[in-house]
Simulated scan of single mutants.
Amino acid sequence: MTPGSYEVEFGESGPTGPELQRLTGAGADDAERVQEAALRPKGLAEFVGQPQVRDQLSLVLDAAKVRGKAPDHVLLSGPPGLGKTTLAMIIAADMGSQIRVTSGPAVQHAGDLAAILSSLEEGEVLFIDEIHRVARAAEEMLYVAMEDFRVDVIVGKGPGATAIPLDLPPFTLVGATTRSGLLPAPLRDRFGFTGHLDFYSIEDLQTVLTRSARMLGIEATPGGLGEIAGRSRGTPRIANRLLRRVRDWAQVRGRGIVDLEAAKAALLVYEVDERGLDRLDRSVLSALCRRFGGGPVGLNTLAVSVGEEPDTVGEVAEPFLVREGLLSRTPRGRIATVEGWRHLGLTPPDTIPTV
C-alpha cells in the first residue's frame, strides 16, 4: 500500500476495515461512532437527492455489468459535503469490487501514482479526491493509464534513461473535484461520465436527516429536522453535523427529543442563525456593513478586519454569502447587498454601488 492511499472493503452493512477506522477513529469501538460511519448510503437507491446524476450513473453501471466490463471513468464535481466520496464507494460496491482511495495532494510525483496504479487489480475502483491538485508529472502519466491502461516506468537517468511499458488491468478511475475549472481539458475529456452535484433542497435534506436520526437512534420530530435542514446550507454533511449537536443539547438540556424547540435553542448556542450563517459569515457581513459602510472593500482588508486569512474569507464564508444574495463581488471589491443589510437588522443606504 502506498502512502496517502488505502483500500476499502464492503460488508453487508457498509464500509469495513480501514474505511471504518478512518471515519470513526482508529480502534474506536463505541457503538454510536460505528453507526455514524454507517450513515453513508450503500447504494444508489438509498442515495437521497441528485436525481439526474443518480439516474445517469445507474445507466453507466448497469450497462457495464451487462457487458461484463469495468465502467467508464467517472468525474464528480461540486461543492464539498454533497456526496462525491459516497458515490465513489457506491460505484465500487455496486460493481462488487474494492476501492483504492487517495487524494490529489498525496500524488505529487509520478512514482507515487505508478505505485498505486501498478497495484490495482482488475475491475478495482481508484478514487482520487481533489483530483485537480494532482501534480503535473503524475497527471501526464494518468492520461496514458486512463486511455491505454498502461504506465511507462522510467529506468535510469539522463540520456540513458529507458521507458519500460507496464500493462495495467482494466480499472475505473473516479475523480472528485470542488473546482472543475482547474482540471486541464485533456484530463477532463478522458472521463466517460461527468456528473455535477448541486446543493440539496430543504425537503431532500429533511429526508437525509430522517434517515440519519433513525440510524443513530435519535428521537426527532419533523419540525425539529426541518429546522435543522433549513440551516444546513443545502449540504448533507453540515446537516448531519448539526443533527448531532442538536442531539447533544436535547440530551443535556432538553427532553432528549430533537424537536423544534430543541433545534432552535441548540443552534442558537452554536451560533447558526435561521439562514445558516455561522459566526464567521456574520463577522464578515457585519464588518462590511458597520466598518466599511457596505463597501466596496478589498478581500485582504476585509479579512484583516475579522482576524482571518484572506483564503478563509474568500473560500469559506464568501461563497455562501454570495449564494444567499447577501454579498456581491465586484471589480472594486466586496459589497453588501440590500438583503445583507436587512439580515443584520440594519437600514441599507439610499444607494448601493453596483460596480
Score class of each variant (00 low, 15 high):
Val101Ile: 15
Leu126Gly: 00
Glu124Gly: 09
Ser305Thr: 02
Phe149Ala: 10
Thr162Asn: 15
Asp152Ser: 10
Val8Arg: 01
Ala70Gly: 03
Ile128Gln: 00
Ala220Leu: 02
Thr24Lys: 12
Gly160Lys: 06
Asp129Leu: 04
Arg100Asp: 12
Ala317Pro: 12
Asp248Lys: 10
Glu121Phe: 14
Asp94Ile: 06
Ile202Arg: 14
Pro71Gly: 02
Gly78Cys: 07
Glu9Trp: 09
Ala265Gly: 09
Pro186Glu: 01
Asp350Ala: 15
Leu302Thr: 00
Thr102Ile: 05
Glu19Trp: 09
Ala229Asp: 10
Ile238Gln: 12
Ala303His: 04
Pro51Arg: 05
Leu120Met: 03
Gln21Glu: 15
Gly181Trp: 09
Gly333Glu: 07
Gln98Phe: 14
Val313His: 06
Leu225Phe: 10
Glu140Gly: 09
Gly226Gln: 00
Leu260Asn: 06
Ala38Pro: 13
Asp152Phe: 06
Lys69Ala: 13
Arg150Thr: 06
Ser58Val: 04
Val208Pro: 07
Leu302Phe: 03
Pro105Cys: 01
Val316Ser: 15
Val34Asn: 12
Val74Cys: 07
Val304Phe: 14
Gly11Val: 00
Val153Asn: 10
Leu126His: 00
Ile218Phe: 12
Arg247Gln: 10
Val246Ser: 00
Ala31Gly: 12
Asp248Asn: 12
Gly96Lys: 02
Leu44Phe: 09
Phe171His: 02
Pro159Met: 03
Arg33Cys: 11
Gly294Leu: 01
Ser283Cys: 12
Ile116His: 08
Pro353Glu: 01
Val272Leu: 01
Thr178His: 08
Ile128Phe: 09
Arg136Leu: 10
Pro184Arg: 02
Glu130Met: 02
Glu339Arg: 11
Arg244Trp: 08
Leu216Pro: 04
His196Phe: 15
Asp350Arg: 14
Ser283Ala: 14
Leu268Gly: 15
Arg233Met: 05
Pro310Gly: 02
Arg291Lys: 05
Thr85Phe: 13
Met95His: 01
Gly256Lys: 02
Thr162Leu: 15
Arg247Lys: 07
Arg100Val: 13
Pro41Tyr: 03
Leu216Thr: 01
Leu59Asp: 13
Leu142Asn: 06
Ser201Leu: 06
Leu120Gln: 01
Lys42Ser: 11
Ala185Asp: 15
Ser58Met: 10
Pro222Asn: 01
Met89Thr: 06
Pro331Ala: 03
Gly230Asn: 09
Arg244His: 05
Arg290Lys: 13
Arg237Ala: 02
Gly345Ser: 04
Ala263Pro: 01
Gly83Leu: 06
Thr354Arg: 13
Arg179His: 13
Leu268Asn: 15
Glu122Thr: 11
Arg323His: 11
Gln21Ile: 08
Leu187Val: 12
Val258Cys: 03
Arg253Gly: 13
Asp311Val: 12
Gly340His: 02
Leu183Gly: 05
Ala88Val: 01
Asp350Cys: 13
Ala163Tyr: 10
Phe10Lys: 00
Gly325Arg: 03
Pro353Ala: 00
Asp55Glu: 15
Ala38Ile: 07
Leu166Val: 08
Leu61Tyr: 04
Gly293Pro: 09
Pro79Arg: 00
Thr177Ala: 04
Arg179Lys: 13
Met141Arg: 12
Leu209Asp: 08
Val252Ser: 11
Ile202Thr: 15
